[in-house]
Amino acid sequence: MKSAVASKPRPLRARIGGLPFLIPSILAMAFFVYGLILWTLNMSLTNKNSVGVKEIKYVGFKNYSDLLSDVTFTHAFTNLVKFTVVFILGALISGLIMALLLEKGIKGEGFFRSFYLYPMAISFIAMGTVFNWLLNSTTGEDAGGINLLLQKVGLGFLQNPWYASQSGAMYAIAIPAVWQVAGYVMALFLAGFRGISDDMRQAARVDGASEWQIYRLVLFPHLTPTFLTVVIILGHMSMKVFDLIVGINGKGFVTQTLAVYMWQATFDNFDYAKGTAIALVLLIMVAVLVLPYLRYVNKHEEFR
């Protein structure tokens, strides 16, 4: 639905539309988003690796190639991949289950829906404080928190050191993350389900399709765009994960991700060149995921 304004030839005032009113925001975005990204890029190509560097020189992509041989970086990267996989799958599955339970309309839906969504209103730092405590690593006799709870309900074999574990820390930290966003995923899926016309279901039912067939052959195919949106939203959240990890485990090595490592490099070691290089790697990863999506959304808007 293009406005009539654009289609009729009009004097300058109409051609520039409301541009003058946008100028403050355009300048702000140009400088604080795009300008600072370029500044970051510029810094990442220098030798500003410590406070002591007096003479700033350009060293090309050295900081980036150094990252490849930096054990902490590769460790943080692997951690991020592990986290992303579990986080996306976990949030997708739990959100979808919540949506499936509610999508047909059930008494008390509003009650459950609003409770399921409240974690999104709370900061990762505050929830990190709780999970830092509850996911305590003590097991067996000394167990407390979640480990004790598992023991009490007869699931003692599931006890584990959670985020203190060498190999499983990232999977453990994905649990609170999933807890926090599952309701959001549910809301996105519910919007998707409710966007499908009831007639489709009815038609399938008249044709003798079973409930399961209706989901598999009618509803799920229509949810593909929702599915895509959810994966992209979760993916970019996951790559940026920072607060939650800091809240639960600070700068702990086992749970380090790119964002945390970037913070450490800049804050503790004043290695701005490395910090900016990590930040740009992160930006590129997010851009690869989000740019096609933005293009897709933009294209579909044109048809409106």
């Binding site: 946008l22 975005m29 604080f32 500044w39 970051t40 970037m262 930006l283 997010v286 851009a287 740019l291």
Partner: peptide, 22 residues
């Protein structure tokens, strides 16, 4: 204006680390 809007939107998704040090 649509292009500018999309350029704005990208600012919503960037990891803020990419602008933080400057």
């Amino acid at each position: 204006s649509n292009l500018i809007f999309t350029l704005f939107l990208f600012g919503m998704f960037i990891p803020y680390q990419a602008v933080m040090i400057p």
